[in-house]
Computed example of a mutant assay.
Amino acid sequence: MFDLKERIQKIRESGLLAHPEQQRQQLDPEDALLPLQSRIQKILKIFQGKPIKSTTMNYFIMYDIQNNKVRRLVAQYLIKNGCVRVQKSVFLVHSDHKKFEEIKQTLVEINDVYENQDSIILVPLNISDARSMKLIGQNVNIEQIIDPPNTVFL
């Protein structure tokens, strides 16, 4: 368990104690949701990149956070740590285990700092699971994203 001084330091690192003018200067992640095509390209880059080493994994990070300020700061933290925003409260990250554990621990500490009924879900995602995903709603063929067809030009 962390003592009070360490907790306050973690809160400062997360940005929860930033001055209002500093917070206004930061880009609001709720407004920074990239267009669908850009998000698809980032997701493709993760899934179609170099073969995944056994020390790395894909993870979904999803949250339901009521407090606007905390939700915004968590989103900023995730983006800063290389997570790709898939939807407003859903992120995808390709990370080694050590970095993922660091992200997870920071989220635990942020959640423990204040009284809440929030939830944060972290889900490991292997390629075969990604290929079996189905998308309902937006007109995006998930199979095209995960496993695009091969084309031969003659």
Rank of each mutant, 00 (worst) to 15 (best):
R71T: 01
R71G: 06
F60E: 03
I65T: 02
R71S: 14
I65N: 05
Y77T: 04
N58L: 09
A75C: 08
R71Y: 00
L73T: 12
F91N: 05
I61F: 02
V93H: 04
I79V: 12
N58Y: 14
G82W: 00
V93C: 04
V84F: 03
Y63G: 05
V86T: 02
V93K: 06
V70I: 14
L92M: 07
V84M: 02
Q66D: 13
V74E: 01
V90Q: 05
F91E: 04
I65G: 00
N81K: 09
I61N: 08
I52Q: 15
V74W: 00
D64Q: 07
S54F: 09
N58W: 11
L73W: 10
K88S: 14
N67S: 12
L73G: 05
I79W: 00
F60M: 09
N68G: 12
Q66W: 07
V84I: 14
Y59E: 03
F60P: 00
K50V: 05
F60G: 02
V70A: 05
N68P: 15
F91V: 03
F60W: 12
V90W: 05
I52P: 01
M62S: 12
K88Q: 15
S54C: 04
V74S: 00
M57T: 08
N81R: 07
K69C: 10
S54H: 08
K50D: 14
F60H: 01
K69M: 13
L73E: 15
Y59H: 11
Y63C: 04
F91A: 03
R72D: 08
N81H: 15
M62H: 07
R85Q: 15
M62I: 13
M57A: 13
L92I: 06
K53H: 13
Q66A: 14
C83N: 02
A75E: 03
L78K: 00
Q87M: 07
Q76S: 08
I79L: 14
F91H: 09
I65P: 00
V93S: 07
I65Q: 02
R71P: 01
I65V: 12
P51H: 11
K80E: 14
G82T: 11
L73N: 15
K80W: 01
K88D: 14
V70E: 04
Y59I: 01
D64Y: 03
Q66P: 02
R72L: 10
N58V: 10
I52F: 09
